[in-house]
């Protein structure tokens, strides 16, 4: 008999991955924000920090939606992921329109941080996930995956 994976939010693998990404983002993100601050000054600092916050919130929200919907049913998982995708894109667009006319906002550091942080954090995390999938004995104690 197969043993199903716990469906509660505590042991959810996607939430563990998202927490890991957020932790790495809080460690590595300030470097990117610092570079943007060096080039664009305080406007770059705020805009880049805002984009980094949006990306980390985006990961957290994506994981939370999957954890919530997978507990209900596979159909709900499909609906939750697809609906969540549009909701998160909407939040991102709304967050941009909310600040675009403010004095401190700079579009270039915002978009650079948005894309770079997303891709770099994902690649960084994927390296570790791939390693723990390939060599399960090496994964850290207490890790969900």
């Amino acid at each position: 008999m197969t043993k199903p994976v716990p469906q509660s939010g505590e042991g959810a693998p996607e939430r563990a991955v998202a927490h890991d990404i957020i932790r790495r983002g809080l460690i590595g993100g300030p470097v990117l924000v610092g570079v943007c601050a060096g080039v664009w000054g305080f406007d770059g600092l705020w805009s880049s920090g805002y984009a980094l916050g949006l990306i980390l919130a985006n990961f957290w929200l994506a994981a939370s939606l999957i954890t919530w919907s997978v507990r209900i049913s596979p159909t709900m998982l499909m609906a939750g992921v697809m609906g969540g995708y549009f909701i998160r894109l909407g939040i991102l667009t709304g967050a941009y329109f909310l600040v675009r006319n403010t004095g401190w906002f700079e579009a270039l550091p915002f978009v650079i941080t948005l894309v770079l942080a997303h891709i770099v954090l994902l690649v960084w995390e994927t390296r570790y996930v791939s390693m723990s999938l390939a060599y399960p004995g090496l994964k850290p104690q207490g890790a969900a995956q």
């Binding site: 990961f59 994506a62 995708y85």
Partner: peptide, 14 residues
């Protein structure tokens, strides 16, 4: 399912 969900989450993000 745990492995599938981890891979799925990363796939969605990519």
């Amino acid at each position: 399912a745990g492995v599938a969900r981890t891979t799925m989450f990363l796939g969605i993000a990519f």
